[in-house]
Design a binder for these strands. Structure first.
Lengths: 210, 210
DNA sequence: TGTACATCAGTGAACGCGCGTTCACTGATGTAC
DNA sequence: TGTACATCAGTGAACGCGCGTTCACTGATGTAC
């Protein structure tokens, strides 16, 4: 998948052997999850879409949960890349960079709501997956670094972490409410760049005295 | 279920007829959803737990999605009641009342994570359910009214609605991150009453100039 | 360059399973007279 | 108060279905000499 030069872009009907099946299966599952929801996918249907027999997936994945984990892992890579790209498109340390991370997050959720839900624990038996856990932490790290740079404090600072977590909560909640259609007129205003900037600033700037 | 005097509290082995089955089924599904996750339940298993044949549920619900809708509907009633109780336990118009609504929300999610996920769109084919939609709006109404009272503005005010939505996003996101175990040390601090108060105040008080 | 062989990635048939739903039925309940 | 009867809420057997997974297999690929 990663060391693959260009075959994955072409339909690559591919020979008998090696049609880049692993990546094709993940793509098929992504499609299924988007159209039928998380848990609305089956190994059989994914194999069908990839044009192979129902036994073929087991040459690449141990079992059904392993396929889901593969999809989630790949999705987390893309999510983190999107967040980083968002941050990089504004001056380091600016509040705009912080808001851009949030905006990238929401955009991802909107673009792939099924996969987004899958990433966030909607599937059973994913608790035992240390690699996924660490990928999640790396995503959070993007938020923390942006917040730290903006506040001029080290990322290890516990107030920075608390505020970054609050920002994440806000953006995460907005993402879910939006894809669940629970949104109102009010939710549309948050997509407004100005609102996102303002609420980000408020959360970062809130006086934590104690 | 509602007009039932006291039978639902007792195990109520009940006669052949009428053992308050509808309510018992909903309770069984709640249990299943908590232990096996949303979509991890089956009509057959729910019937088994309620001690009836697998055909019995169809006397009370049209089909499987209808059972899910019943569970969600009942859960939304309880969620709204909890939010209202939270608001009522502090002076009307106080920021504490606003924060208490949020705290009730998070407590609900923590107490019944499976049902909470179910409520928020994780199940297929619930798009066609106007009664659920309106129940959701009534929940949001609790937040809006608390925010309006605190700001001294009418609930119809669009800024009030926008800020209420932001509060809801924040609390919703925190709820999900918490039950998904995506939380860190940082998330625990938000359960701290003082933090919740502060961030609520920040969101309500943020300067929306435009 | 050619051959022998281990490995790899697929096939396709088969399995057992539990599910959602239906059906004709039956016993208990509530009501009219 | 008693009886006749409509209705209601259950039974249990049966159906067809698609799924996850295994199995022995086979043809293509890559490598050693």
């Amino acid at each position: 998948m990663t060391e693959d030069p260009a075959a994955s872009t072409a339909p690559a009907r591919a020979a008998y052997h090696h049609g880049d099946l692993r990546a094709q299966l993940i793509a098929a599952v992504r499609e299924l999850v988007e159209t039928h929801g998380p848990d609305g996918f089956s190994v059989a249907e994914a194999a069908r879409r990839a044009g192979v027999s129902s036994a073929a997936p087991y040459k690449h994945f141990k079992d059904r949960p392993a396929i889901l984990r593969g999809v989630v892992s790949e999705a987390m890579d893309r999510l983190r890349a999107a967040m980083e790209a968002g941050a990089a498109s504004y001056p380091a340390g600016s509040i705009e960079a912080v808001a851009a991370v949030g905006r990238a997050y929401v955009s991802f959720a909107r673009a792939e709501p099924g996969v987004f839900r899958l990433v966030f624990g909607l599937t059973e038996g994913h608790e035992t997956a240390p690699d996924l856990q660490s990928k999640g932490e790396r995503c959070f790290g993007v938020v923390v670094r942006a917040a730290a740079a903006c506040l001029g404090l080290p990322p290890e600072n516990s107030d920075v972490q608390a505020r970054a977590y609050m920002l994440w909560s806000f953006v995460h909640g907005h993402s879910f409410l939006t894809i669940d259609k629970k949104s109102n007129v009010a939710s549309d205003r948050i997509d407004d760049w100005f609102y996102l900037l303002t609420v980000s600033g408020a959360i970062l700037g809130l006086p934590i005295r104690r």
